[in-house]
Simulated assay, not measured.
Amino acid sequence: MTRVGGRNAVFAWVVGLISAAIVAVLVVLALPMLPASLAWLGEQVNGPVSEPQAGDEPGDDDLPAECRDLYSQPLWATLVWAPDAVLTPSRDLPSTSAAGLIDALAPTVRMTCTWTSAEGEISTTLAEVATDAGAIAATALPTAGFTCAAIDGRTRCTRTDGELIETIEAGGGLWLSTSQTSWQPADYPGRVAEAVWAG
Rank of each mutant, 00 (worst) to 15 (best):
A20V: 15
D92Y: 11
M33I: 11
A39W: 00
R159H: 04
P35S: 09
L70E: 08
V25L: 15
I136R: 03
R7C: 05
C67P: 05
W81N: 04
S182C: 09
T147H: 03
T112S: 09
D92Q: 14
A127W: 01
A85T: 06
V49K: 12
P83Y: 08
I136C: 05
A127Q: 05
G173K: 07
G16D: 09
W197M: 02
G100T: 01
A99V: 10
V23M: 14
Q180F: 00
C113M: 09
A144L: 14
G173F: 11
D103P: 02
A198M: 08
C113I: 01
T114H: 09
N8Y: 13
L164Q: 02
P185E: 03
S72R: 05
A36S: 12
V25F: 14
L34W: 11
D92A: 15
T167I: 00
L75N: 00
W197P: 00
V49D: 07
L17Y: 11
V45Q: 10
S177K: 02
W40G: 01
A98S: 06
V129R: 01
D60R: 06
C148P: 06
A30Q: 12
A133M: 07
Y188D: 03
E57V: 14
V49P: 08
T88R: 15
N46L: 13
E119W: 06
A144N: 06
A133Y: 11
D161L: 11
A106S: 13
W183M: 12
L126E: 07
T155I: 15
T158W: 09
I22V: 15
D84E: 14
N8G: 00
S179R: 00
V28E: 02
P32F: 05
S123N: 00
W13P: 04
T2H: 15
W76C: 02
D61M: 12
P94L: 07
L105M: 00
Q73R: 08
A198Q: 11
M111R: 10
A144T: 08
P74L: 09
L87V: 04
W115P: 04
L38S: 01
A193L: 08
S123W: 04
A118Q: 06
E43G: 15
W40H: 02
D60V: 02
P48C: 10
E119M: 11
L141Q: 04
T114V: 11
Q180G: 08
L41R: 10
T158G: 02
L29P: 07
T124Y: 05
A20N: 06
A36M: 15
V80L: 12
P64R: 13
P32T: 09
E57H: 10
A104T: 05
N8T: 05
L164I: 12
S19R: 09
S50V: 12
A150L: 05
G59Q: 10
A150C: 02
E128K: 10
T143L: 13
G55D: 07
I22N: 02
S97Y: 05
I136D: 07
T181E: 06
L101Y: 08
T112Q: 09
T181K: 01
P58E: 03
P58S: 08
T78N: 04
V45I: 15
T112G: 03
L176E: 01
G162M: 07
L79E: 01
C148N: 06
G153L: 09
A118T: 11
T116S: 14
E51F: 12
I22C: 14
A9H: 10
R91I: 07
P64E: 14
L26I: 12
A99W: 12
D161G: 07
A135W: 04
I136S: 08
E119F: 09
G172P: 03
